[in-house]
Each structure stands twice: as structure tokens, then as C-alpha cells.
Design a protein around this nucleic acid. Structure first.
Lengths: 186, 186
DNA sequence: GTCTATAAAACGATAGAC
DNA sequence: GTCTATCGTTTTATAGAC
């Protein structure tokens, strides 16, 4: 076996960083390959194309949230309110850890109207996210109100990233967390 | 004297539609020219380049809001609450009138981290927007609370567009308007 | 020799600019 | 329309591990 410079997981991780920061259309295969120390042609040993790579990146993000973030909502060692705080705080921390904000939101805004390729994955992600928050808010509110509060939290979170990107002021995200908690207690 | 087929204003308007729907990097000069019925080359008679065109588009959007939307907040024939409702409703109606949502938000998310070219214009737009909403909320709240409520309204509005693009469900925007009004009365 | 990760080169298409 | 550069992609070649 020849020497492997990067694993597929590393490629996906590097691609995630670039796609988050630069967006999908602005990021070239050469950019992605260079971030991995490869030439762009070599990239096609791992992926059939740019769109297939993005789909694997989206799957990776989804998988992380499904295993590391959303389950917080069902951790019975915590109160529902503690779970809500831990869940949103963790999401903000994880997503803030690298540049570019929320890949799912970025991609939705960049591609939803010009390509169907990524819509199913993005829709499923946000559906699960909304269901998770609705489950928590339902401890203190009716199902209908809980759903609206979940939608409000997601909408605020995604919008806050736009303002953070523009102003470099992370206070927008801190306020989102605080308000999401205040609305839990009503 | 050659016949001028399209005015500069028409070019800017057509570019606005395309940029809103397809984004900046995905929209080519050929796309823009075709939408105006021009040859690519003719485009550089109007604009020195793609970035200069976008700057004029952003100026046009800013100009529209400065003259047609933001002044609603200072219309003394209406109550402050009526102004708030009219302002947000008008913005939603105007922006929803064509595909693609809010150009300022789209551009902030797409370009803020990879180019300084458009940041000043976008920052000024959102600053004026926040000041306008703060002015209205200040009728019923302290200046500090009013500012936070304004930020919340903007963040919700921009985030709602992400969900609308993804789900085609405009209810997200209607809820933004309703909540912005509820928070006025506290 | 066989397999495979990478390099290298080149494809057609399209980008922005003139 | 024409330019040059670069896009995403494909193909061929090389090099090292079995």
C-alpha cells in the first residue's frame, strides 16, 4: 500500500472548515485539495465530485449533532431546563470553534433556490433540531407553543450568525441562548 | 449615437433579482448580461466589474430602505406601534415580492469572511435598520431594552429567511412580525 | 506482479475582463 | 467576440506496500 497522506475523515474535516468559511461556490476543488496537501486531481480518489463531497460533509455534521448534541435533550440526569441550556450552549461552542458559523444555515441560504441536491439533508437536519427543542419546551408549554418556541430559537440562532459574521460581535449569540432559556420559564 | 437598449437602473434591478436568487459567486456576468438582453462586453460600459455592480446594487437597496421603509418609523400620523407594524410588514412584503430573500443578509453570510469589499455598506445598512427599530421600541422601553429588542427583531427576520428558503413556509416570517409587535407592548 | 494513494497532465467548459 | 485564467473533471503515470 502506498503512503496515505490524509484519511477520508481528515479530508471531510478540512472541507468542512473551508466550506464554512468560504461557502460552497467560492471554494474550489483546488482549495480543498491544497488544504489537505493534495493536488485537485487526487481528490477524486476519495469523492466522485464536489457535490458528493459536500453531501458527505453535511452527513458528518448531521451525524455529530445526532450523537453529541441532540441526545442532550434526553439526558434524564438533568432537568429539562438544564438540558436546554446545555444543548444550545454546546451547539454555540462547537460551531464557534471554527470560522464561518452554521454550515447548514449557510448552505440553505446559498443553495436552496438553485439546487435540489442538498435540500433533503438540510431539511432533515432542521426537522430533527426543531423536534429536539420542541421536546424540551413541551415540558413547560403546550405542544403548539413548544413548537413555536423551538422555531423561534432556531430562527434567532441562524439570524444571529449573520450579524456575528458582519460585526464580529458574539453577543448576538449569547443573547440567543439567554432568551431561549427565558422563554422556557415563560 | 447608439441606441441605449437598457438604462443603468434597469441593469441594477435585473442584477438585484439574480443576486438575490443565485447569490454573488454563483451569478456570472453572462447570467447578468443575458437577464438584461445585453452582450457580456456591453456590461463594462455600465460597470467597471462585478464587484462594482454589486456595490451599486447594495446602494440601491439601501437607498430604497432609506427613503421608503425606514421613514415609516417617523411618520407622526401613526402611533409608534402602528409604525412598527407598517414598517416590518412593508419590508416583508417588498422583500418577498421577488425570489431570494434579503440581499443584505445573503451577502453578509456569503462574503463577510472572504472579502472586505461589501462590509461597509452592509454594516451601515444594518446599523440604520437597528437604529430605526430601536427608536420605535424606545417609546415603550428603556434605551437599552429597546436596542436589544431591535437586535432581536433583525436576527429573527434574517434567520426566518433561511427557514423560508429551505421549507417554502412563509409562516416563519409572519411569526417574526407578530412577535416583534407583541414585544412592543411587552 | 497487483493494488492503490498520489502526482501530473490535460480535458472541455466557463469564469471575469476588455 | 476574444482574451486568459481557472473551474470541475478525467485520464495517465508513478511510486510504494502487499
Amino acid at each position: 500500500m502506498p503512503i496515505q497522506k490524509v484519511t477520508k475523515e481528515e479530508v471531510i474535516n478540512n472541507a468542512l472548515l473551508l466550506f464554512k468559511k468560504q461557502g460552497y461556490h467560492r471554494t474550489s476543488m483546488a482549495d480543498l485539495a491544497a488544504a489537505c496537501g493534495l493536488l485537485k486531481g487526487s481528490f477524486y480518489h476519495y469523492f466522485s465530485g464536489k457535490d458528493a463531497l459536500m453531501k458527505e460533509v453535511l452527513d458528518t455534521v448531521h451525524g455529530y449533532f445526532s450523537t453529541k448534541v441532540f441526545p442532550i435533550a434526553f439526558d434524564e440526569s438533568l432537568t429539562p431546563r438544564e438540558r436546554l441550556e446545555k444543548l444550545i450552549a454546546k451547539q454555540i461552542r462547537v460551531v464557534s470553534n471554527t470560522e464561518g458559523g452554521c454550515l447548514m444555515g449557510n448552505m440553505a441560504l446559498e443553495t436552496a433556490l438553485i439546487s435540489d441536491d442538498f435540500i433533503p439533508q438540510m431539511r432533515i437536519f432542521f426537522e430533527e433540531y426543531l423536534q429536539t427543542l420542541t421536546h424540551l419546551y413541551a415540558f413547560q408549554h403546550s405542544p403548539e407553543i413548544a413548537q413555536k418556541l423551538a422555531q423561534q430559537a432556531v430562527v434567532e440562532y441562524e439570524g444571529a450568525w449573520i450579524m456575528v459574521k458582519l460585526t464580529n460581535d458574539y453577543q448576538y449569540l449569547k443573547d440567543v441562548l439567554q432568551r431561549a432559556l427565558e422563554r422556557f420559564d415563560k
